[in-house]
């Protein structure tokens, strides 16, 4: 029997186990990859955005099932969302926020990291491109009724009943 096949580490799963006490290098490394996947290429911007993400992460309520790395990544998303909400006035509009995030990441506003790092209102021009790119998937709902039609199928019994009624009537 090939022992090597039996003795393989049973806990070796597709996603590696969570790191419960990550070093700051590890944490920043994951954040860096995440920001890069969103199109942030400038190392300085990556550092500043990561710091903001960590600040956000510290403010998040404690949840035992969320490990520190995940918390930091949630913080990164929150940095982006906060900026979108403030810049585009999207308070109380989760649907539009999602559409705005999708539009931003589609690449219509290549300099967005700069915008996030500056206070809102400094240069409104790039935001117009973002507003234009926010496309709603469907128009507003106008509910209409579509009543189910009655189709009276032919049945011999029905035919006899009809005949009987006619006979009785005459």
């Amino acid at each position: 029997m090939d022992r090597s096949k039996v003795d393989t580490n049973y806990s070796a799963t597709y996603l590696p186990p969570a790191v419960n006490q990550p070093s700051s290098e590890f944490l920043l490394g994951r954040l860096k990859s995440y920001w890069q996947s969103m199109g942030v290429t400038d190392p300085m911007q990556v550092v500043v955005l990561s710091k903001r993400a960590l600040q956000h992460a510290y403010r998040l309520p404690e949840q035992p099932e969320i490990d520190p790395v995940a918390r930091a990544l949630i913080g990164a998303s929150a940095v982006l969302d906060d900026w979108l909400i403030r810049s585009l006035n999207l308070q109380n509009n989760p649907g539009n926020l999602k559409a705005a995030r999708a539009a931003l990441l589609s690449g219509v506003m290549p300099g967005w990291p700069n915008m996030v790092l500056y206070p809102p209102g400094t240069d409104e021009h790039p935001l117009d491109a973002l507003r234009l790119a926010i496309a709603k998937p469907t128009p507003e709902l106008i509910p209409r009724a579509m009543p189910t039609q009655q189709i009276r199928l032919f049945s011999l019994f029905g035919l006899f009943r009809l005949l009987w009624r006619k006979i009785c009537h005459t």
Binding site: L15, P16, V19, R30, S37, V69, A70, A72
Partner: peptide, 10 residues
Amino acid sequence: HILYWSRPPA
């Protein structure tokens, strides 16, 4: 999404 980025597979 968060799982994949916090614990990326090999």
